[in-house]
């Protein structure tokens, strides 16, 4: 089934100069390998087409079931130089969570009662 990342993961983003970082964390351990397989550096670069003007680097943190992405040249020069409203990349986290990936129905069923899903879907 195709799902938005926000249904299976959460994230926080920040900045280092002109580079935005996004930490993407799986709600459940069983989802982490899916993130590793699906949310590649290439896909993230493609997702942020027009926003990220440099390379995307990815680091794996299985201990935190997290992936860390560095999006180079994404903040209009960064810091005080940038003219962007979001010069510190604070909203990049949820921009990534818009991405849709394929997850097996079996894995999703196990996640049905987990926190972090939009309340409307909790029913």
């Amino acid at each position: 089934m195709r799902v938005q990342l926000r249904e299976i993961a959460f994230a926080r983003s920040g900045d280092k100069g002109d580079t935005a970082n996004i930490g993407l964390v799986a709600f459940r351990p069983s989802i982490y390998p899916v993130l590793v397989q699906e949310v590649t550096a290439e896909r993230v670069k493609q997702h942020f087409d027009g926003i990220c003007k440099g390379e995307v680097e990815r680091f794996e943190l299985p201990n935190l079931r997290a992936l860390n992405f560095l999006l180079h040249r994404s903040l209009g020069g960064g810091g005080t130089v940038s003219l962007m409203l979001d010069a510190q990349g604070k909203t990049f986290a949820t921009a990534l969570l818009r991405m849709e990936i394929d997850v097996s129905d079996e894995l999703l069923d196990r996640d049905a009662d987990r926190p972090g899903r939009p309340p409307a879907e909790q029913a």
Partner: peptide, 10 residues
């Protein structure tokens, strides 16, 4: 965890 990954590099 959210704070741990905040402004993380390598």
């Amino acid at each position: 965890t959210e704070q741990l990954v905040y402004e993380m590099g390598d």
